[in-house]
Design a protein around this nucleic acid. Sequence first.
DNA 1: CCTCACATGGGTAGCGCTACCATTTGTCTG
DNA 2: CAGACAAATGGTAGCGCTACCCATGTGAGG
Lengths: 342, 342
Amino acid sequence: MTKPRSRRGGGRPTIADVARKAGVGAITVSRALREPGRVSEDLRREIQAAVDELGYVPDPNARALASARAEVFGVLVPSLTNNVFAEVVRGIYDSLSDSPFRIQIGNTHYSGLEEERLLQVFGSQRPAALIVAGIDQTPGARRLLENAGCPVVQVMETGPDPVDMMVGFSHFDGGRTAAEHLLEAGYLKIGFIGARMDPRSQRRLAGYRAAMEAAGLFDPRLITTTPVPSSVSLGRELFRDALAKMPTLDGVFCNNDDIALGVLFECRRASIDVPKQIGIVGFNDLDMMQVSFPSITSVRTHRYEIGTRAVAMALSAITGSRPEQRIVDLGFELMRRESTAR
Amino acid sequence: MTKPRSRRGGGRPTIADVARKAGVGAITVSRALREPGRVSEDLRREIQAAVDELGYVPDPNARALASARAEVFGVLVPSLTNNVFAEVVRGIYDSLSDSPFRIQIGNTHYSGLEEERLLQVFGSQRPAALIVAGIDQTPGARRLLENAGCPVVQVMETGPDPVDMMVGFSHFDGGRTAAEHLLEAGYLKIGFIGARMDPRSQRRLAGYRAAMEAAGLFDPRLITTTPVPSSVSLGRELFRDALAKMPTLDGVFCNNDDIALGVLFECRRASIDVPKQIGIVGFNDLDMMQVSFPSITSVRTHRYEIGTRAVAMALSAITGSRPEQRIVDLGFELMRRESTAR
DNA sequence: CCTCACATGGGTAGCGCTACCATTTGTCTG
DNA sequence: CAGACAAATGGTAGCGCTACCCATGTGAGG
C-alpha cells in the first residue's frame, strides 16, 4: 500500500526529510551544513531548525561515497600501550576533537607486513590524511603511502626522504647526547641496555656508539639488548645480565625510561649506589623520572607536540596550503638529575 | 568521446571491473568475497584471480551504505594514556585483528557530555558494536546506546543494570579487599589517596570506607583526593599532604599504582621505612609493582582480558547467538608483596 | 532597454556496493 | 517422466549523499 519509507535504512531521518521539512532542495541542506556561507541567512536558520527537530545526523558513509573522501585520519602506531605512542595519539586526538574528522588507529605491532596490510585497509576508505610512526616503511608500504592521494605525515623521527611530511627528532643525536653526558660526568664503562630494538632504538644505539667510539671507550660487550618488549621488570633482568657480563660497569644508557627504572630498582636492591657506583640515563623523560629516588636523568622528547604538530601540518595540507617546512625537527632536551650527579 | 571510466572515483578498480574481468555478475563477486560458500569453487577461483590481478579492495563506505551496517567497532574510553584503558584497548585490537572489523576509538576525557557527543557521531555510522568504559552513562548517552541497534558492551565495571552486556569487576570489593589486607597486616591509621576521582575510584573509596568502618577505624581526615589526573609525581605530593594532615598515618591504599609509586619514592626520600612505618597498597598491579624496591602490594585487575572478553561477547551477539551470561565478572586478585609485609 | 556578472537555489546523475527477487540448471521424488 | 525443490547466478533498484551543471533573480553597466 504505502510504499515503505525506506526499505533498508533504519528509518533514521535523511537529508531528504530535512529538505522536505524546511521546504528546500536536498542539495541546499547539504550546502547549509558544509558551506554555510553559500546559503542565505534565512534558509540556514530554517534548515537548522529542521535538523534539530528531526535529530538529523549526516551519514558519514554516504558522504564519503559521494564525495570520494572520508573525513577520517588514519593513524598507524606500533604499540598502543607504549606510553610514547599513547602520548602522540593523545596529541592527535586533542588537536582533532573540534574538527569533523574521525580517527582510526591501527596497531602494527612493530611489523612491516602488518603495516602494509593496515595501509591497504585504511587506503580503501580514502582517508583525509595518514599519520604513520617511523620512517622505515617497507617498499610496499611506501608505495601505498605515496599513492594514498592524501597528506601523509611520518612522525617520531626525522630523516632525509619524507613521503610527504615529517615531524620528529633525531634519535641518533638523542643517543649520542645521553652517552656524552655520562662521559662528561666521568663515567667510563658505560653500557647500553635496550629492549625491543626497533629502528629508532637502533639509531639511539648508533648515537651511543658514536659517542663511545669518539671517546675511545667503545666495547661491544657493553651492549645488552633483546627483541622482547620493554618493561620495568625486563630492565632489571637486562641490567643483571649486563653486570654479569661486565662487572666493572659504571654507567648505563637505557633505551627507555621503563628500563631505566628497572635498573634503578635493581641497584637499590643490590645496594649499588646511584650515582656513585653507577650512573643511569633514561630516554623519553616520563613523569616518574623526576620523582624517583634518586631522580633519573633522561632525554626528554616532545611526544604530545609531535601529535599536535602532525595534525596541524596535515590540516593545512588538506586546506590546500602545504606548510613551507615539510620536515619539522622538534628536538629533545637532556634533563640532568641525581642519577648522574657524581 | 570515450565516456570517462569514472567521473569522481580515483580510478581504482571497482567490483564491476572485477566482474567484467572474471566474466560474471557484480553480485557474484560480492558474494564470493563475503559468503564464499554460496559460490561454486570454479568461479571463486576465477574471481580471486581477477581480484588479485586488479588489486581490488572493496570500498567500505559503499559497503556500509548499501548494507546499512559498517564493519566498525566503536570504542569509548575516558583516557588514552592511562595504562589501564590502553590495556583494554590492546585486548580489543588483538581480538579483532583477524576479523574484517575496523576499530574507532573515542576519547571522552572523563566527560559525560563528550561521551554523548561521540556516541552521536559513532551511531551515525551504524557500527557493528559499541564498547564503552563504565556504567555511569548520562541518561542521554544511555538512550543513544539503547537505540544504537547493535550489541553494546559496558566494560571495566559490573553493575545491576546493563544496557546490553557487561564485562568488568567490582571496584567496591577491590577497594575493600585492599583496606582489609592492610588491617589484617596490623596497620591502623590507613589513609586513602586518590587522584581523578572518577566513578570507579569513588567506588574503590567506598569499599575502603566500608572496611574501615567495619573495623571502627574510619576517619574522614584519612582521605586525600584531588580531581587532577593521576601521576607518579602527584602521588608524592598527595602523600605529603596526607602526612601533614595526619602525621600518625601508618598505611595508605592508593587509588592506583602511579600514586603508590609516588608514595614509595617519597618514603625513600624522607627515610620512612616501608613496610615498617608505612604500608602501601596500589591498584591495578602494573608490571613495575613487582619490580620496585620494596615491591608493592597491589590489586591485580584483568584489563587485557576485559578487552578480549568484550569483543568475544560482541562478536557472538553479532552472529546472532547472544551469550547466555550478559554480565561477566572477571574479578581481581590481591598480590601481597613487600610493601605490606610487616 | 538589454546584457552581463554574481549570488542563490535546484535537478539530475551518479559514488560502489548489496538487498531483494528472478532465472536457470540439475537433482530428487513419487 | 512430470513436478518439486534446491543450488547457483544474475538483474534491478536503491542506500544517502554530493559533484556537476543549470535556472532564476538581482543589480550594475552600457
